[in-house]
Amino acid sequence: MTDARHEDAVVGFDTLRPGLMRVAYRMLGSVADAEDILQEAFIRWMKVDRGEVMEPEAFLRRTVTRLCLDQLKSARHQRETYVGPWLPEPVVEEEEEEDVTLPLMLALERLSPLERAAFLLHDVFGLAYEEIATTIQRDVAACRQLAARARTHVREERPRYQVSRHQGLEIAKAFFVASRSGDMQALGDMLAADISVHADGGGKRAAAITPIFGFDAVMKFQQILADKLREHGSTLVRTGFVNGLPGFITLEADGEFQTTALDIEDGRISAIYVVRNPDKLRHLH
């Protein structure tokens, strides 16, 4: 391969990388695994006869999707043996990602790998069923059925009462201040009656081993947490959108990062998602 052809191949892949990363991450819920998938796809891209590839983007999307389907087979067992609630690795962005929020990603976990692929490729990325059929190696009718079943399962997890970007970030800042200072009155005013807390420590950092449901239980938990945080400290690093939800990154007393994402409905926080597992936070460094 000439240097020029090699460079063109690299540039072509790098141009498509952001879109391919979106597919891989939404399929797997793991930044590290998605990066591994893209590395393998790049290796295959460099080996293929690109003169025979009519549509590089479609070819690479098929490659990435099929690699993700293989990865999901082993990931399912890992999730079943995971210590405590499992949450996707947090991706923190300045702007809100509207296509796949954290609750929807959790709903996708309940789907089969093929249902997940069909739903994401069609409903999120807007691909035709004919291309999806080629990608996952099923006929068009089967792909329609897979996407329809998936849609039924995840319909309830679509955002219903979205707040504006500004309002969401203001609520996130206010939640940080109230939860760290122990202002329980201010904190209580922000929470919905059916509030829930989901904390992912992965068995490697302290976290609630099961989700906490209900206003009274969450307020009791937040009071205990606030007492500890006043003693040990918690520093706000930045606010932003964590997997599409308003939230923030903090530096905790043990020197590790933590992300908090807030699902907000009708102006009140309906769910709190906290990632503490250091293995899921490495990319934030």
Score class of each variant (00 low, 15 high):
A41F: 09
G19M: 09
V53N: 09
V53M: 10
G19Y: 10
L114M: 12
S164I: 01
L114E: 15
V23H: 08
G240S: 07
R5C: 04
F59C: 05
L262F: 06
V177S: 12
A117G: 07
L121K: 03
L108V: 03
P278R: 00
M184G: 07
H283T: 00
V10A: 12
T2H: 13
P85A: 14
K73P: 00
Y161H: 15
V48Q: 12
L20I: 04
K73N: 05
L236R: 09
V237R: 11
G182E: 08
L262M: 01
I132V: 14
V177L: 14
C143N: 06
P88Y: 13
L28Q: 05
P159E: 00
T260L: 15
M54W: 06
L120D: 02
E157Y: 15
T239M: 14
A253K: 07
H283S: 00
D99M: 09
E131I: 03
R5I: 06
E156K: 11
V154E: 07
A208I: 02
D254L: 02
A174Q: 12
A172N: 04
E156F: 12
V237F: 13
A178D: 12
R17I: 01
Y161E: 12
L114F: 15
R26A: 08
A34E: 07
A208K: 03
V197I: 14
F241M: 01
I249G: 03
E89D: 15
T260G: 02
L67D: 04
L104C: 00
L106P: 00
E95T: 10
R205K: 13
E35I: 04
A142D: 09
E156Q: 09
V100I: 02
G233T: 07
M46T: 04
E98M: 00
R155D: 11
V140H: 04
A147F: 07
W86K: 08
Y25L: 10
A4H: 11
D123H: 15
G201T: 08
L127H: 13
T15F: 14
T2F: 13
E157T: 11
R5H: 10
E40K: 12
K204E: 13
G247H: 07
V163Y: 01
L60D: 06
A141I: 03
N243Y: 05
D14L: 15
L108I: 02
V11L: 14
G51S: 10
G84C: 08
F215I: 06
G240Q: 03
H6A: 13
P246C: 03
R158Y: 15
R116Y: 08
E80Y: 05
